[in-house]
Simulated assay, not measured.
Amino acid sequence: MSATKQYYRVMLGPGSCYAEDGVAGRWIGADWSFDFDLSDKLLLEREEFKRAMRPIFLENNPDKTKVAAGLAAGMLYTICRDMKAGDLILTPDSQGSYFVGTIAGSYYFADGEDIPHRRRVDWYPGKIDRSSMSQELRNSTGSVGTVSNVTKYAAEIDAHIKGDPAPVLVATDELVEDPSVFALEQHLEHFLIQNWPQTELGQRYNIFEEDGEIVGQQYPSDTGPIDILAISKDRKELLVVELKRGRASDAVVGQIQRYMGYVKDELISEGQSVRGAIIALEDDLRLKRALSVTQGIDFYRYQVSFRLLKGAA
């Protein structure tokens, strides 16, 4: 198992309203209506834990969906078990800055508290100003949900902590064939989220929301995060959207099939189905060949354009 230090953004309550309490009490934590000690449950592996906790969540929150239940259980597991001693935590305050600390203890249950499922944290004396972050890091730390993993920006975060926030390029992965397209499509995901209603997919699907907040961006699955998880306006079809991100075609097709399998097995309800959509910059022949013998996955090509507007002399 890798011992690589991980970096997380953690919200302490709605809008991180308990951030000051967490810093004063030296903890981070979560709730999600589970009002009992999770120590025994946390002996389970992640997917076993999620399966055990989903029905409890849905019983306590009958108006919620399986999607919300899976998200809550997964993030709770991340906070209570996945985070290791020494992992770095960013927690937003209410003034546009982030408290910074490191995990310093294992899970404990604070009975009767609003945020009962906790980890000890050693908080640093200073903060990181959000306005000094790169746009990519701001997008990631500003994503919805209680927990987001921002380890890919470790070098930039460390530079901020040291007081030298020099620009840092985001890392790619071994499946990336075209780094320039990979970099462009880091922004495409956020553009799609912000402009979803104006897209062709947005005419038929809504990105998953819970309590007015988008939870369908980077939705966690047991084989990795789904770029976008949406649902048809009649609630009968779930849509898995994957951006090619300059990767090899075979890798993208295999990945989206795994995501669709996860949604089929874990998230859909009776009468629902799942479909996939791959979005790429180029009219990729290899991708189209692979999809021609694959059911339930559509291919979309996006275009990038800009104009130069001459200002007044």
Rank of each mutant, 00 (worst) to 15 (best):
M1S: 11
A3S: 14
T4Q: 11
T4G: 08
K5C: 10
R9Y: 06
P14H: 10
P14D: 14
G15T: 08
S16L: 02
D21I: 09
G29K: 04
A30Y: 08
D31L: 09
S39T: 14
F49W: 00
F49K: 05
R54Q: 13
R54F: 00
F57E: 01
V67F: 00
A69R: 08
L76K: 12
T78I: 08
K84L: 03
K84R: 15
A85M: 12
I89R: 01
L90W: 05
S94D: 15
S97M: 06
V100I: 14
Y108G: 05
F109N: 01
A110G: 11
D111G: 05
H117I: 12
R119T: 09
P125D: 11
P125Q: 09
I128K: 00
Q135Y: 04
N139T: 10
T141P: 05
V144M: 12
V150R: 04
Y153S: 11
E156K: 04
I157C: 02
D173T: 04
E174N: 01
L175G: 07
D178S: 10
N195E: 12
E200K: 13
N206I: 01
E210T: 12
D211W: 04
D211L: 09
D211V: 05
D211G: 05
T223K: 12
G224V: 09
I228V: 12
S232Y: 07
K233Y: 11
R235S: 13
E237H: 00
L238Y: 11
L238T: 00
L239W: 03
L239H: 04
V241M: 05
E242Y: 02
A248S: 12
G254L: 06
G261P: 03
Y262G: 03
V263L: 07
V274C: 15
A277V: 14
A280M: 04
A280V: 07
L285P: 15
K288P: 02
A290N: 10
A290H: 06
L291A: 06
S292D: 14
V293G: 06
D298W: 03
F299N: 01
Y302S: 05
G311W: 04
